[in-house]
Design a binder for these strands. Structure first.
Lengths: 239, 239
DNA sequence: CTATTATTGTCGCAATTTGAGACAATAAAT
DNA sequence: ATTTATTGTCTCAAATTGCGACAATAATAG
């Protein structure tokens, strides 16, 4: 983690979405001894693709490879330059600000959102953080710098892309019921959808493969399980 | 243009769209004595917002303020790091590579697209370029580095945003006919649209104000002129 | 002044998509 | 066997879209 290792002035932040208990959640880290909450982020090595840097960070935080990842905006206002904040974090961790002076510079942050299966993840804090935990989108702690704005824009982008790309299933198990999928869509869009119309629409797209029924033990008709599968050689991008 | 003035490793590129002769066009600059074509780009000052840097560059290139501008992607692959190219440009302009060594570093580029009224612009080359001219999207010269990819992605984004935001009119005069607007949409989407359906749809959105007719001298019914105007307090963002 | 021509604003109709409710099927409990 | 909750599917109305048609009209030609 030396100065020469990373591109100066460049950082990334990631909004990592998961779905649990009918709620859309994201991963938030908390820095040691500071009470500061932040999005998981990191820096780009000199010899590393930007996208690869983000995937590396995601791997460290979630243990997952092959995550659905989307870049959505780059934040570059001068107002986000607040060296005191970074200084606080470094000092709270007994990092000499001499060696890490480059971290006190102005940064531009490229923001990504990721969709992962909540169950697959054991959130792991990094060196500076003492926790990395899920928070419901409707119950986030106050975030440092402009991270609240980043989250807001991430959700906005996810919603916009929900129909065009077919990303809902990335938040679920490989096998899921129609009801689970609908609840994911409802959590993302923040509104109730009509069951019949939703089922009809999704099925008409021909991207789901139907499997055996799921017998949950509940006293009612068992739902089919589905997996995401392009039957014909259809492209992922709709339209 | 000294080293200390700009943020290292950070550049922007802009895809500036105009509409003329039923064609969608963009501005391309050509560097002195090199035969290299590129998108208009620039750097971010230490004390300057990223978005402001782009607007500053746009102002220099087009003379226009208040341009419709959209950030769409940040390109950060290592593969775009080709110091020879920049060196060629600097040497062709008799710029000492000593003073401009920072320009030979690896850069991450934040890409924007702009929509402007073709007629309003007198394209102006910068210090390093000997021309800044319009090129039809279907007849672009070979562009340096990954600039062709940037253009491709810009068009893709513009198309995706065309319905959601109502951006077509930014390429036209304040007063325009329905036919002109349709031709803009067709140029962007790259397909013919049905006249009746287009008119009905646009008018139903209630965002156009109808003005007097335009008597062109042609032997046919004169079309109405329209301007873009939100009648009720509607938001620009649709949906 | 009348006929012609090209283009415009608008309408009608069929086809398609969407919203909302209804109903039979069914897995498990009573 | 009956009840309960949920599922898959259907029907019908409402809204949207694709496509052609028609009258209106600005200028020109005769």
């Amino acid at each position: 983690m030396e100065q020469t290792c990373y591109l100066r002035h460049i950082a990334y932040d990631s909004v990592i979405f998961g779905f649990s208990g009918d709620k859309l959640k994201i991963l938030i880290t908390k820095y040691h001894n500071t009470g500061l909450f932040a999005l998981p982020g990191g820096f780009v090595r000199m010899d590393e693709n930007l996208n690869d840097a983000v995937r590396r960070g995601l791997k460290e935080r979630t243990g997952l490879d092959n995550i659905y990842l989307e870049q959505f905006y780059t934040f570059g206002d001068v107002a986000r330059f607040k060296p005191e904040v970074m200084k606080t974090i470094l000092e709270a961790n007994n990092f000499s600000t001499l060696n890490y002076e480059w971290m006190l510079d102005r940064f531009i942050s490229i923001a990504y959102y990721a969709l992962i299966n909540y169950k697959d993840v054991v959130p792991t804090p990094d060196v500076l953080s003492d926790s990395c935990d899920w928070y419901s989108m409707d119950d986030l702690p106050p975030l440092m710098l402009d991270h609240s704005e980043i989250v807001k824009k991430a959700l906005q982008n996810l919603r916009d892309n929900l129909e065009r790309r077919l990303v809902g299933m990335n938040l679920l198990n490989p096998l899921f019921t129609m009801n689970e999928l609908q609840r994911v869509y409802e959590a993302i869009l923040g509104e109730k959808l009509h069951r019949g119309a939703f089922q009809r629409k999704i099925l008409s797209m021909g991207i789901l493969k139907r499997h055996d029924k799921q017998y949950t033990g509940a006293a009612n008709k068992a739902p089919f399980l589905y997996s995401f599968e392009l039957s014909n050689g259809a492209k992922l991008e709709i339209r």
